[in-house]
């Protein structure tokens, strides 16, 4: 990636003033809060930091968060790709409305999503009420958390895959059909490989969002220690209990993890689309 000066760019004028102004604005907005987390986390030394991370509750929260994020990414990869395929390849009455509907979770506050899930699946919810006699109760269980994360992160996979499918000419599939490939073979050998880049970025985005999800999780999980408490919920709980340093240790680790994911994403999307191996070789 080279930044060639284009016509109308200010490459030749002095950058000092605008750049320092930008940094000045960003300092209190982005950089200082992040720095504060790390400063507080290590204030009592690395020993205390490690100790905070090694409590069973913190350990559980991390493992649970990672597990949910993996599961969410995997499940939404399948459903999201399927949704993208249907929305991209078929024309049917209401296709546009459906396309808007599946993207709605981005626009709705996550707390509202949590509430609506409770109102549907909770013990007095529309469907949940019927499950009570069967002894089933999805809310306030790991399953409920997974459900919330699936809903909240659904649009990311779709958004990453659908543009690729839209760009794929119909003749691409038709070529495979005339050659003799069945619908399934065509999907596996021709369409899916063309979507690789989108699948990867979509999964990474989903994973990252699931890892940090708070609003919907706090409602559907019941915030049960060692049962449904994700890492963000744990941080919040520790803060409320006044254990600022414990909260910060977990927060710093979570932030670090997110950085890693983010850089992975940047590298992957920035280094040229892998759907065109020709260029990367």
């Amino acid at each position: 990636m080279t930044n060639l000066p284009t016509v109308g760019s200010l490459a030749h004028s002095k950058p000092f003033v605008p750049v320092s102004l930008l940094v000045l604005v960003l300092m209190p907005l982005l950089l200082l809060p992040l720095a504060a987390v790390f400063v507080f986390a290590f204030r009592s030394g690395p020993g205390a930091f490690l100790k905070a991370l090694l409590t069973p509750e913190a350990q559980f929260a991390f493992r649970f968060s990672l597990l949910i994020a993996f599961a969410t990414a995997a499940i939404n990869a399948v459903i999201g790709t399927f949704a993208a395929y249907v929305l991209s390849k078929y024309r049917f009455p209401g296709d546009r409305s459906l396309g808007i509907l599946v993207n709605l979770p981005i626009a709705i506050p996550t707390v509202v999503i949590g509430t609506s899930l409770l109102l549907l699946w909770g013990p007095i919810g529309l469907l949940g009420r019927m499950l009570v006699p069967l002894g089933l109760q999805p809310m306030f269980t790991p399953l409920g958390v997974l459900l919330a994360h699936l809903v909240v992160t659904f649009p990311y996979m779709l958004g990453a895959v659908k543009p690729l499918l839209d760009e794929l000419e119909t003749t691409y599939e038709e070529a495979a059909y005339t050659i003799g490939a069945s619908r399934w073979q065509t999907f596996m050998h021709v369409i899916l490989p063309a979507l690789r880049g989108g699948l990867f970025t979509g999964a990474l985005l989903t994973f990252a969002h699931s890892l940090g999800e708070f609003g919907a999780t706090v409602l559907v999980s019941g915030n049960l220690r060692l049962r449904t408490q994700t890492a963000p919920l744990y941080i919040f709980a520790q803060f409320e209990a006044g254990n600022i340093e414990t909260a910060n240790a977990v927060a710093a680790t979570l932030a670090l993890l997110s950085f890693v994911l983010f850089f992975l994403l940047l590298r992957y999307t920035g280094a040229g689309a892998p759907s065109e191996p020709a260029r990367s070789r």
């Binding site: 000419e169 038709e174 070529a175 059909y177 003799g180 063309a194 759907s275």
Partner: peptide, 21 residues
């Protein structure tokens, strides 16, 4: 019959060469 069972060779105007192969 579906296209798979017709055994025709088809060349498209845009070639439709599979890009990942």
């Amino acid at each position: 019959l579906p296209p798979q069972q017709r055994g025709t060779g088809f060349v498209f105007q845009n070639y439709s060469i599979f890009r990942h192969m």
